[in-house]
Amino acid sequence: MEYLIPIMAAAVRSGTPILFATLGELLTERVGVMNLGLEGIMLMGSLSGFWGALVFSNPWAGIALAVLVGMALSALHAVLCVSLGANQVVSGLALAMFGTGTSALLGKNLVGVTIPGLPAAPLPGLAELPWVGPILFSHDVLVYGGFILTAFLAWFLYFTRGGLNLRAAGEAPRVVDAAGLSAVRLRYLYTILGGGLVGLGGAYMSVVYTKMWAEMMTAGRGWIALALVIFGLWHPVRSALGAYFFGGVGALQLRMQAGGTTVPAPLLMMLPYVMTIAVLFVIAVRKGYAVSLGAPRSLGVPYHREERDG
């Protein structure tokens, strides 16, 4: 069973960038805004994170910059979708393309450059534990940040008033307004915070995971994160497990090939996607076909205080 340790450690490591993007999208969708621009925001995060880490010779400066860039891009999305009532799908897709193209253009001179990046920081004491030590506690600070953030969001969403307000804005914004809060302000707030997390996921790719910049380097991880929010049925813990599971399957198939196993790799590569469909199927059957699977009821619906509901 020892051979499972490096696979599971790789799962945590390669699942972390997807985890941040997933949690960011989860916040955004919970407040009622759908942001399909994850891939583009992640790439802009990768680029700005790498650039910042290089120019300021400090990985944290890059990471902070990536978070800010992620927040700025999603603020743009919020202006279009929350204030102007634009189509969220179109705005999100535009953002995905914008980020992909812009990062490629601006990043031209950064290709081929390497940075020291964020070092690994095994937690003293915990890292020596059998099994959990090498799997969970021998990584870098951001991996631990991912654990904490997941737990924090699970607590915040379901056990605090702030979380209740957030969810209410995604379910029934008119009720939130009637209660004297501003649904619009909540939507802005969490769309922007969520975008910051997506940028952080992108920075993890370039500053921590690979320590280089390459055009399109997120290679579809933004789209996977989008699917994982659904896979986790809009719950932070389930979505986090999904992110690590995706990372784990990727690591497993590479390691099976390296070990000389003859299971066809493409079969394993499609496993996460098959699992997502299976989860949706099982829940739909169990709850009846008409359920919303736990999606926020007003997800993707623009809200205007002055207008009547359809």
Binding site: T210, M212, M217, R221, R255
Partner: peptide, 13 residues
């Protein structure tokens, strides 16, 4: 083109 995967494949080997 997937630096993350290239890295993980190298570690697996």
């Amino acid at each position: 083109f997937d630096p993350g995967k290239e890295k993980e494949a190298t570690k697996a080997l």
